[in-house]
Design a protein around this nucleic acid. Structure first.
Length: 625
DNA sequence: CTAGGGTTAG
């Protein structure tokens, strides 16, 4: 292992220029903190101190239950003249960082004249733990400058900070440092590097590093599984899990949480069941984190019943568990239940956070609970002091928009004093589509396309609004614009989960072996729809299919539902599903009405990763029609 | 004495 010296740390020589980027902090400003007076039950007896001095590896700082005790030990150690022993000083330093007492830690740290690697590592780790990244980086820089040998323990800490701050640039540079001076304890550094790359969305780098690893342990596998999920490839994540087990690595609970998340993102019910069975077979106990992940998985895979059942089994539910369950009810179209759950949560003494309110507002907007949603919006600010961010505003715009109160949505946006993003304008544009508001749509689309000129979905949405109003010239214009700017709409596709198998269809697809039957079934549905008074709206078929095919597709083509759903669904081509028991994924507000007319079975509509359940005659969205 | 992987929204 190379030793860091001033010379080889010269930035121009060794590509360590990043060090000069790091802000320096004045560590000479040492604030002397008086030791707080010990209260009786935090008092540590002198005999215990003398025991500490006999056994240095007692990790006595870990045993301090509160900060006062650390101060107490510190005082006693000074009194006994042991503070000059570096092990004691480091140990107390660690004690301070465990209790986030950075002021005391820093004072002690600066007073240590002969710091060793442990002192540096503990101090840097202390800042990292307390999310004080500026001081963390600047202390790390000091460490490298000090000429002390870089310690195996410190790099993972600093790389982890890069992960948390999503600082890919610095992360890469630290990777260079690692390469230059050796990995030290390889598995630790490699794992955190893979994780850092994944969280910074550099999945290529993460995968390369992972593939090149000469050996992998459980943590390496776990971060890579999480990395795949994070970067939108949950299928790969589940494959990796299988590979990991083939290689004889047994998962623990943390690994399982990652697998559950992958399965949640995949949204395939039979995978969810396999994962759930495995967890039961392995007898992993249900703690809050695993339990909450399972609740989320089952809900996102369409089974709110299983989600609810597991939620009930979580002993110590926290805000996240409650928020997860509230959100689940929201996207299953059970707005009132989401509200009830919220009140139950308050009764249980759990303090809601900003995400809880996003889930609630979402639930209200998707169940047409306008009044309730607005109440939540003000309650959130007045009672809980949560400042609404753009996502809260987006929910409220959606709330107004779906209910046809476009004026109020516009006023809300105009009065906002925070930055507006594409999601916000998108919500308003969606409302324009539902209510056929062309003029407003044009204005909104302008803002939206300025923010995301390459997003085909926005063009399609606007085009559909024109089509609905019969403004064919404008429709053609948009088509032209898209061709001109080489913006392509990814064709919509449909998949269904039948008997644990997934069948995927795209528009006009005849490749499925059961095509005949599928077409027959769709024809049947089509007739029922018409009997129920549904008039197919061919306007929406414009963008992917030629005019001449339009009617044919809607009436005779087996893809009928798939196509209709596909085109009216979220423009980006969010997966749309129709399963045997008619689990449908698409824009619920456009389909719910006729879907629930066709069947008296339960209907689940999935809209941008959320599900909405409906039963005939109990359509919670009927306010919109 | 110090180091890597865990739950909600987006």
């Amino acid at each position: 292992m190379l030793k860091f010296t001033r010379q080889n740390l010269d930035p121009s020589n060794h590509g360590l220029r990043f060090l000069s980027r790091l802000q320096s902090t004045d560590h000479n400003q040492i604030l002397q903190q008086p030791f707080s007076s010990p209260d009786s039950d935090s008092h540590i007896k002198e005999t215990e101190i003398s025991q500490f001095s006999e056994t240095l590896d007692l990790k006595f700082s870990r045993k301090c239950k509160n900060l006062a005790q650390v101060h107490q030990v510190h005082a006693q150690v000074i009194v006994n003249g042991l503070i000059r022993d570096l092990s004691f000083a480091n140990n107390i330093l660690y004690g301070y960082t465990l209790h986030r007492a950075l002021q005391s830690a820093s004072t002690l740290f600066c007073g240590i004249s002969e710091k060793n690697a442990v002192s540096w590592s503990v101090m840097i780790g202390g800042y990292a733990k307390a999310d004080d990244y500026v001081n963390c980086y600047s202390t790390f820089r000091e460490y490298m400058r000090s000429g002390d040998r870089l310690d195996n323990y410190t790099l993972p800490v600093v790389i982890r900070v890069c992960r948390n701050t999503r600082d890919l640039q610095l992360g890469r540079l630290l990777h260079c440092v690692v390469h230059k001076f050796g990995f030290g304890s390889y598995l630790f550094v490699a794992a955190v590097l893979v994780d850092m790359y994944a969280k910074c969305k550099a999945i290529g780098d993460a995968a390369r590093l992972f593939d090149e690893m000469p050996k992998r342990d459980l943590v390496s596998w776990t971060v890579m599984i999480g990395a795949c999920t994070e970067c939108g490839n949950p299928e790969k994540a589940l494959d990796l899990f299988d590979r990991m087990r083939q290689e004889g690595v047994m998962p623990d609970k943390v690994a399982m949480v990652n697998v559950v998340n992958a399965s949640a993102k995949l949204g395939v019910m039979h995978k969810a069941k396999i994962v759930d069975n495995y967890i039961q077979k392995m007898r992993f106990s249900l703690d809050v984190v695993l339990g909450t992940a399972l609740v989320d998985m089952h809900a996102k895979c369409g089974s709110i019943e299983l989600a609810r059942e597991i939620f009930g089994r979580i002993r110590e539910k926290n805000v996240i568990s409650w928020s997860t369950m509230i959100a689940a009810h929201g996207y299953h179209g059970e707005g009132q239940k989401a509200l009830d759950l919220f009140h139950l949560m308050l009764k249980n003494g759990i303090l809601p956070n900003n995400i809880t309110f996003i889930s609630l507002l979402y639930a209200c907007s998707h169940s047409g609970l306008v009044e309730e949603g607005l109440n939540i919006f003000s309650l959130m600010q007045e009672e809980y002091g949560v400042r609404p961010d753009v996502k809260h505003f987006t929910c409220v715009v959606d709330l107004f928009g779906r209910a046809g109160k476009l004026d109020q949505a516009v006023t809300l946006i105009e009065d906002m004093d925070i930055e507006k993003d594409a999601g916000l304008w998108g919500a308003l544009l969606g409302a324009c589509r539902i209510h056929g508001h062309v003029e407003l749509a044009e204005k909104v689309a302008e803002s939206l396309l300025e923010l995301q000129p390459q997003n085909a979905g926005h063009y399609v949405l606007l085009s559909n609004i024109y089509a609905k109003a019969g403004r064919w010239k404008e429709v053609a214009k948009i088509r032209e614009l898209m061709t001109h700017q080489r913006i392509k709409k990814i064709p919509g596709w449909t998949w269904t989960e039948v008997d644990n198998k997934i069948h995927k269809f795209s528009v006009g697809d005849h490749t499925h072996p059961l095509s005949e039957e599928i077409y027959e079934e769709l024809k049947c549905l089509s007739e029922k729809l018409e009997l129920a008074g549904y008039v197919p709206d061919t306007n929406f078929v414009l963008h992917d299919i030629d005019e001449e095919l339009k009617l044919g597709l809607l009436h005779t083509h087996s893809e009928k539902l798939a196509i209709v759903f596909g085109l009216i669904s979220t423009p980006e081509g969010t997966p749309i599903r129709i399963t045997k028991n008619l689990r449908v994924c698409g824009d619920c507000h456009t389909f719910t009405k006729f879907v629930s007319l066709v069947t008296n079975r339960l209907v689940v509509v999935r809209d941008a990763n959320r599900f909405h359940h409906f039963k005939e005659g109990a359509c919670s969205c009927r306010d919109y029609w």
